[in-house]
């Protein structure tokens, strides 16, 4: 994987998630950060820090990104193999706030 094809998402407690850019772009907010013509530091370094998102939640969000890509792929080939995305009840509220922020 080439470096420019990935992005680094950093949680509040400093944990780094390196994921495909394509996956990260599922989030409208991250997409805007990475593609806006301005001089966002994020655009240049391919790094986004989320001081308000915990590691647990950010991991869950990354899982969602990949699940979402897989879902779309399965729809496009009509395989009918869409899986469910599991959400732990105790994470729901915090995850929702992050999802709202990320436009995801």
């Amino acid at each position: 994987m080439k470096k420019e094809d990935t992005v680094k998402l950093i949680s509040a407690d400093g944990f780094e998630f390196v994921i495909d850019k394509k996956a990260a772009m599922v989030s409208q907010t991250i997409r805007n950060m990475l593609t806006s013509p301005g001089s966002f530091a994020e655009t240049q370094h391919g790094e986004v820090t989320f001081p308000e998102i915990s590691t647990t939640i950010l991991e869950k969000i990354c899982q969602y990104f990949y699940w979402s890509l897989q879902y779309a792929r399965s729809i496009s080939v009509g395989s009918g193999k869409e899986t469910e995305f599991h959400i732990e009840p105790e994470l729901t509220l915090e995850l929702m706030m992050a999802a709202n922020y990320l436009h995801t």
């Binding site: 779309a72 995305f85 009840p89 729901t92 929702m96 999802a99 995801t104």
Partner: peptide, 16 residues
């Protein structure tokens, strides 16, 4: 629904 993936927001709301 078949062509569009549910957003994480929607999934959370359904879960609640």
């Amino acid at each position: 629904g078949k062509t569009k993936c549910p957003s994480l927001m929607e999934l959370c709301i359904y879960k609640i």
